[in-house]
Write a protein that binds this DNA or RNA. Structure first.
Lengths: 246, 246
DNA sequence: TATCACATACCCATAAATAGCGAGGGTGTG
DNA sequence: CACACCCTCGCTATTTATGGGTATGTGATA
């Protein structure tokens, strides 16, 4: 049976969106796909942006190379309210609703419009299991009225499409990467969970009503299963893989 | 302008969904709302399940008190594939697509159907900014064909509805409480990231070209920001909140 | 201009985790 | 009936982490 696909219950545009997406197998394909969205939605620009708070984000854009390179070189994603806000929200948002008050943000805005980015924009954040965040955005030059109408008309398919796009990007990213497929025993889960909440081994042992030595066995076997070097690593991996919840 | 509402671009059922939801101000209201979904979607049960690292999950269910209490008392959410899988996915999933192979899962399944849960179910996970996870589920007793059709017909509105529901639950939960959105400094991120990969403090310090003592300051300030009790807890929380990636 | 967050550096005593050895009983599957 | 895996308990020695201090310079921000 497998995961439910979205293909069967969407109207034309989203259907086209999904059909095109389905045929993507590489990031180059995905780039072409994103390019194609300009025509599909009749907007100037489309962006897929995958962010993890720390490092250099990965992005597929339709902007000019000049602007894209400048953006990346200047690490503007650390300033860009569109990106920063994504970390605090889970709902789609119009770029107008963001706070452009800070000095660097205002500067960026001027550069951005200069660089060909439209004056209107909408972003849909999609969060994956590991706190990974992708951002699907459309940008256009238009009046507020036109843009509001556009957002209203397309919100549904954008939300669905963003999910689907993120799923595809993930599947491409994890191609060939043998994802950790581990199951922890209940006691191992207990052990790592309570360790993850900051308790010491002795406290955890007491909490679980077992000896500290027994607890240690669980930690070690969990560490072995997860291929972790130490407890910190084991807990981090377990959380990262959704095996435990802190 | 503010956040874009979904109310303007949805069909009847979702419109009703949103209208009803909009008038909810407390968790009691939300419970009534969830109850009302049974009629709206013509299914036997609806569930809103919010899981956060705090431990005990919060759930609003339409199941019998017997089953709900049993489920909570036995901490079946630690076994329930429906819940566990939510931590690994971000797309809606049919309960049939889950792995029910493990012994506790099979036992639970028998108890669940005995407890009035339908043989079919669908869940839509929605992730919030801080790694918080909510799960919106519908359950029904029906044939595979019927249920597949139901899912196809309702997928869109369920995905949208789940987002909206999560937003509402969040707004009720955080009424008056201004939640602390932690930001880690780049160095703190570095420190926790490398610690999370299993390196010792001395190794991390060497890797970052700083003294171990400096590193310790980062760890401590990160711990303070995250309200963590120790390094393990800090790394776990950072991973859980999507602040670092292992 | 004053303050605050950040990055950097150090000492010392104690608490905690790890590595290296052991052992036995239970349960379920091929 | 093995075999694998889970749960339970023990010791010793060494390495690492933590918490208590103190201090300087820088850059941004208010």
């Amino acid at each position: 049976m497998g995961e439910i696909t979205l293909r069967n219950f969407v109207q034309t545009k989203l259907q086209i969106f999904c059909d095109r997406l389905a045929s993507c197998n590489t990031f180059e394909d995905l780039h072409d796909f994103i390019e194609g969205l300009r025509g599909l939605f009749e907007v100037e620009h489309a962006v897929y942006h995958a962010a993890n708070r720390k490092g250099e984000p990965f992005a597929i854009v339709t902007y000019s190379n000049d602007w894209a390179n400048y953006y990346e070189k200047e690490k503007l994603y650390r300033v860009d309210p569109v990106v920063l806000n994504a970390f605090q929200r889970f709902h789609p948002y119009d770029w107008k609703s963001l706070s452009w008050d800070s000095k660097p943000a205002r500067l960026m805005l001027v550069d951005a419009i200069d660089g060909g980015v439209g004056n209107q924009g909408i972003s849909i954040p999609v969060r994956g299991p590991n706190g990974e965040l992708s951002l699907f955005s459309l940008s256009h030059t238009a009046s507020d009225e036109y843009w509001l109408r556009f957002c209203e008309d397309h919100m549904q398919m954008l939300l669905l499409g963003a999910h689907y796009l993120h799923q595809k990007a993930r599947s491409i990213e994890h191609q060939g990467v043998n994802r950790l497929y581990t199951t922890l025993s209940p006691r191992e889960v207990d052990a790592l969970t309570y360790l993850g909440t900051g308790r010491s081994r002795s406290q955890v042992a007491e909490h679980l009503n077992i000896s500290e030595h027994t607890l240690r066995v669980y930690i070690e076997s969990a560490r072995f299963k997860l291929g972790a070097l130490n407890t910190v690593n084991a807990v981090a991996r377990a959380v990262s893989n959704g095996l435990i919840n802190i």
